[in-house]
Design a protein around this nucleic acid. Structure first.
Length: 925
DNA sequence: TGGTTCACG
DNA sequence: GACGTACGTGAACCAG
């Protein structure tokens, strides 16, 4: 029999109680912190008091990740009347998570589940393992879980609540409580129940009949006529209510039970947290402050203007010689112990490749405080000439020692672009968690204000120039891999990375709540990291022989065309040189209408050549065809063959999370987000992306998501109605703008619809449609007249960006547009168009990211855990799965994608999802 | 390295 | 009256 005793703290209950018990207070940074203080005090008291008794062996704090959950899918009115949390409480949630972490206690939350459900899951698992369980809460819903070995602890009056309490309060056994709660309903959570039935009657009915089903089936036996009729009329509501109050206890545990083991109270991280928050009275308890300050609460009442946070100047200079090379186990143990003591640690990996799927781990660097960093070489070899293989800890030994630290749920790991380290460490059997990513912190705070690479950030925030990689490893042909760098040099470079990362975290993390970026960071971008890491590791199979065949075919055809082009031009020249081509066309051949750009070369782009081809210039058409063939060959059929990973036989792209200004992902090495599809020849390349034998490819894409979002965000009744009915939106636009729907007007209408998303100008539209400018102007005016809301959206967005300097998506993601205040008209207008487009493109990006986050759990819950998500192409997700999984997976994928906004945002248009399958990506469209 | 072109959403 | 002219990406190629 195990003597383990798990305590589960209902964090949400704690938070609200703390908030309402204390006056509004702010901390030394000027952020509201009353609830943080109350929560910290209560948690302290709990841990302290439990310590004196035969307290817990395991402890976790459970929080609600989102305000709405699966219950809203059952009943859209669930908790609908609950007001949003008070404005000054919202920024305190992340600080409260920090508080829990400072206590070295795991903090658990899960999208789509309420804290109550997570508590039920852990209770179930712990009881099954023979543990005792105590839930720290006095919530009546949680009383359903009471049974021998499980009780509730009400910390308000230090009471243990067991079976007797339920019997006394509700007159039934805990197992029957759910039925009572269903009948009586809950006005706060908006659980309907049965009208006219309160706690008394509900309890009496369940006592009399035993359970809800019997009550509903036995209305004949009920004598009171009103009660009887109400039960008959609202039986469905009662059944729905039963499901709403039922706790979900069959979900996978976010953290294994064993990871909740209590470790006592390491004073260091706690001290750091309390000092940062300015909680002096608590600081005194933890062992006195350095200043020995007063033990009164050092918080200022709100009311007066909060002072701006003091600029954090790093007092600690960068000193590369102070970094430590860790080459023996004792030293490593010391660093790991330091990590546990601090409660957070910056981590960086060094490898021999920029491609994380190919990269072999060469070393790991750690930092625990500014200036305090080390490098642990693991696979360094000499340069083969002068230096020999240096002394270092055996890789397996070091990995085994680092793993518990890197996976400990109470220790925060801090990295810069954690996805890379995750992919590399996954192959060493390490799954980093929990983590923060300074690159993503910067992206979610400062998108549009500059790069988010470490060098950019160090320069911008720390006024520090990092050691450049090329000064360590060289460039070009002379470049060496990191395992050949001398230990001394490697330590300076690698430890600096960890040091810089830690300092950046200290600068950026606090801004998150103050600047309203917490939600998008914690609930979208940060959790997406491991999802993308798995997609990159999965890769996609390409048929090398097919690519080679296409390559040869394209090459032959291009060579033939090149000969004809030379003949037509009257002599050989480099067709691929825009400069030479321009000279040949407009000077040597004397064609008319050549336009020169800034750099003095004739434009020979597709528009210009199409114009000439339309005028009957045969060489223009030939050049266009030649360009297409050579483009397809060099960029796709040739390059792609070289990108196949020899170990996996697949192509592993790298998704960049912090490049696009709008929140989109981008894809590199190779870019799999621009594989051809629009032309027949190009589409054949997509056919070379295949499923492995016995599997098929499934492609699911949002149909016209950006137009739908525009209809919602600009609130355009006609467009919303059309989407709701499933009408063809371009035909509708054609009807409204041109008065008739033909092939031609529909095509023009499509262009107009796109131009709206991109920030329209009459000149630009005139160019696209090849009509006079005045005509384009008239179309725009007609569009605005027919679809009121669009011009209002544009005006409101521009007013907002001019005032704030940024625009936001429906999910709160910011894009900063500093050029909006430029003195140059061109720059300003460009920023205006970006401002109109960014909320729409960015919301679309948020939505598909949310779908990706939920996809794996949803598939797993449907018994489809081995369906693999491979690619994201902005509005499309690509999967690989067994043919007999297609039917079930399609349902899950469609549901997850179509419902990805919920619960935070409810759109006024439906999101359409189109799904196709086939042996190749091309065939799946 | 910068400019041009073109593949995708 | 002039200005500059569709949003977001990445990669290959030429030429200086």
């Amino acid at each position: 029999m195990s003597s383990n005793h798990l305590y589960l703290v209902d964090g949400s209950g704690y938070i609200f109680r703390a908030y309402h018990r204390l006056p509004p207070l702010t901390n030394r940074h000027g952020t509201p912190a009353g609830a943080v203080f109350g929560f910290t005090t209560m948690l302290w008291k709990l841990v302290d008091e439990l310590h004196k008794t035969d307290g817990p062996t395991h402890l976790a704090v459970i929080l609600d990740a989102s305000s709405k959950t699966f219950r809203n899918e059952m009943y859209d009115q669930y908790k609908a009347h609950r007001p949003p949390p008070p404005e000054d409480l919202v920024p305190q949630f992340p600080l409260i998570r920090d508080a829990v972490r400072a206590f070295s206690v795991p903090c658990i939350e899960e999208l789509g589940l309420e804290a109550d459900d997570i508590i039920a899951c852990y209770s179930e698992a712990a009881m099954a393992a023979g543990w005792k369980v105590t839930i720290v809460s006095s919530d009546k819903d949680l009383m359903q879980l009471i049974r021998p070995g499980l009780d509730l602890l009400d910390t308000m009056n230090n009471r243990r609540l067991g079976r007797e309490h339920v019997l006394e309060k509700f007159g039934v056994e805990p197992e029957q409580l759910g039925d009572v709660l269903a009948l009586m309903g809950d006005s706060v959570d908006n659980v309907p129940g049965v009208p006219g039935i309160g706690p008394k009657t509900a309890s009496q009915l369940i006592q009399q009949f035993g359970d809800l089903a019997t009550v509903l089936a036995s209305t004949d036996a009920i004598t009171k006529p009103k009660l009887k009729q109400s039960l008959i009329d609202h039986a469905d509501n009662a059944r729905l209510s039963r499901e709403l109050v039922r706790l979900k206890c069959d979900q996978a545990l976010p953290e294994p039970l064993d990871d909740l083991a209590l470790k006592g109270l390491p004073p260091e991280p706690l001290r750091a947290f309390l000092e940062d928050m300015g909680f002096k009275s608590l600081l005194a308890k933890v062992g006195g402050t350095s200043t020995g300050g007063p033990t009164v609460l050092a918080l200022a009442p709100t009311g007066q203007e909060a002072p701006p946070p003091p600029p954090k100047l790093d007092a600690v200079p960068f000193s590369h010689k102070d970094y430590e090379a860790v080459v023996d186990e004792d030293a490593l143990d010391r660093w790991i112990a330091e990590g546990f003591k601090c409660g957070r640690i910056a981590v960086d990996t060094e490898t021999d490749s920029t491609d994380p799927v190919r990269a072999r781990l060469v070393g790991v660097s750690l930092a625990t405080a500014p200036g305090k960093a080390c490098y642990i070489p693991l696979a360094h070899i000499g340069d083969g000439l002068l230096s020999e293989t240096p002394r270092q800890i055996a890789k397996a030994t070091a990995i085994a020692k680092l793993k518990p630290l890197l996976e400990d749920p109470s220790i925060l790991k801090i990295g810069q672009n954690m996805k890379y380290d995750m992919v590399v460490l996954a192959r060493e059997g390490i799954a980093i968690a929990p983590y923060d990513d300074t690159m993503l912190l910067s992206y979610d705070l400062d998108a549009g204000l500059g790069g988010h690479g470490m060098d950019d950030l160090a320069q911008r925030h720390l006024d520090h120039a990092c050691i450049e990689f090329k000064t360590v490893c060289g460039t070009g042909k002379a470049q060496i891999t990191f395992d050949k760098v001398t230990l001394e040099r490697a330590t300076e470079y690698a430890a600096e990375d960890a040091d810089v990362t830690l300092r950046l975290w200290q600068t950026l993390k606090g801004r998150l709540a103050r600047e309203g970026a917490t939600r998008v960071y914690e609930l979208v971008d940060r959790p997406l990291v491991p999802v993308l890491a798995r997609m990159e590791q999965a890769g996609i199979k390409v048929d090398r022989e097919e690519l080679a065949r296409l390559s040869a075919e394209f090459a032959g055809e291009a060579a033939r065309l090149e000969g004809e082009i030379h003949q037509e031009a009257g002599g050989p020249f480099t067709v691929g040189s825009p400069k030479q081509l321009g000279d040949v066309l407009f000077d040597r051949m004397g064609l008319k209408g050549g336009r020169k750009g800034k750099s003095g070369v004739y434009s020979t782009d597709v528009n210009e050549l199409e114009r000439l081809a339309g005028e009957g210039v045969t060489i223009a058409r030939m050049v266009l065809d030649w360009r297409q063939l050579t483009k397809l060959r060099s960029t796709y059929t040739e390059a792609l063959q070289g990108q196949i990973n020899p170990a996996t036989g697949r192509v592993h792209t790298c998704f960049s999370m912090a490049v696009a200004q709008t929140g989109r992902l981008s894809s590199t090495d190779p870019n799999l987000q621009n594989i051809p599809i629009r032309t027949e020849m190009g589409r054949r390349i997509r056919d070379a992306f295949v499923a492995e034998p016995g599997k098929v490819i499934l492609s699911a894409d949002y149909s016209q998501i950006e137009l739908r979002l525009a209809a919602h965000m600009a609130d355009v009744p006609a467009l919303k109605e059309a989407f709701a009915k499933g009408d063809d939106i371009h035909s509708l636009t054609a009807q409204e703008v041109f008065g008739e729907v033909t092939r031609d007007t529909r095509a023009r209408a499509k262009t107009i619809n796109f131009s709206i998303l991109y920030g329209i100008s009459a000149f630009g539209l005139a160019n696209r449609l090849e009509v006079p400018r005045a005509e384009a102007q008239a179309m725009i005016e007609r569009y605005f007249a027919r679809f009121p809301g669009i011009n209002h959206y544009i005006a409101a967005t521009l007013a907002e960006v001019r005032e704030k300097g940024f625009v936001t998506t429906l999910f709160g993601r910011k894009t900063h547009l500093p050029w909006i205040r430029s003195s140059k008209q061109g720059e300003r207008q460009s920023a205006e168009r970006q401002a109109i487009n960014a909320p729409i493109q960015g919301t679309s990006a948020d939505i598909i990211k949310r779908a990706m986050l939920r996809m794996e759990p949803a598939l797993a819950a449907a018994g489809l855990a081995d369906v693999r998500m491979l690619l994201q192409v902005h509005d499309e997700l690509v999967f690989e799965l067994a043919p007999d999984q297609v039917e079930a997976a399609s349902v899950v994928i469609r549901d997850v994608m179509a419902g990805a906004c919920e619960p935070y945002v409810t759109l006024s248009v439906p999101l359409g999802v189109e799904i196709g399958t086939g042996p190749s990506w091309g065939a799946a469209h």
